[in-house]
């Protein structure tokens, strides 16, 4: 199996002395559905931000989809975010003044796709996540589960090999959370995309091909 994420002794220390992440080392293969479980403050979000090239590690190295990440090159980091990574957030973070369709198209604005291509791709993804009839609805008109489905479609729109999800069901009820996990799992299999999902709910580990635990900044396999 090809390696999609390769973390080698990734560490993060804030303000010179506050350790947020120990030396995290792991590899994740192409199309794997992985959960990272840990308590709040354990460094989950820090690790996710480093994997998403939003934050830089204090030590260690990271290889994404075969490319060693140079954290000193901001332009390259932007390019990696555009091409290789899709984000799903706990708060959904949809733009309130854009419709579901427009929210899904949004990342493609930065990838300079033609309007027709954007519309077709976003429409197809909304159909896939079961929101075909809700394209023209604004986020405020959608339920939490529906908003997260839109966010999943948005994360997939540039067809990235890696999807990073930060507590994607943290704001949803149990039933909807299960549906969202099932949906992500199905889509991961269909598209052979690697899902790396941070959660503090252990029960969703059953959806994962592999689960890691983050305790005191150290990553261990469960």
């Amino acid at each position: 199996m090809c390696t999609t994420i390769e973390a080698d002794h990734l560490g993060k220390v804030y303000r010179g002395s506050i350790p947020a992440l120990g030396e995290a080392s792991f590899t994740i293969g192409k199309g794997e559905f992985v959960t990272l479980i840990g308590r709040s403050g354990s460094g989950k979000s820090t690790l996710l931000n480093i994997l998403g090239c939003l934050d830089s590690p204090s030590s260690g190295s990271l290889t994404l989809d075969g490319e060693p990440v140079d954290f000193r090159d901001p332009a390259r980091l932007v390019s990696i975010r555009r091409q290789k990574i899709g984000f799903i957030f706990q708060q959904f973070n949809l733009l309130p003044h854009l419709t579901a369709q427009e929210n899904v198209e949004y990342p493609m604005l930065f990838n300079y796709r033609e309007p027709e291509v954007r519309a077709r791709t976003a429409g197809g993804l909304l159909e896939r996540v079961g929101l075909d009839g809700r394209r023209d609805h604004y986020p405020a008109e959608l339920s939490g589960g529906e908003q997260q489905r839109v966010a999943i479609a948005r994360a997939l729109v540039s067809n990235p090999p890696i999807i990073l999800a930060d507590e994607p069901t943290g704001n949803l009820d149990q039933k909807t959370s299960g549906e969202i996990f099932s949906l992500m799992q199905e889509i991961g299999r269909e598209r052979k995309a690697t899902f790396f999902i941070v959660t503090h709910e252990r029960e969703f580990g059953e959806y994962a091909d592999r689960s890691f635990r983050l305790v005191d900044g150290k990553v261990t396999a469960i």
Binding site: G52, L54, P74, A75, V78, R81, R82, F87, F89, N93, L95, Y106, P107, F110, N111, R154, S158
Partner: peptide, 16 residues
């Protein structure tokens, strides 16, 4: 602020 941060996560450059 949050919207701008999200845009950056979704691929917006500083120039964008």
């Amino acid at each position: 602020t949050r919207e701008i941060g999200v845009s950056m996560a979704l691929g917006a450059s500083q120039g964008d």
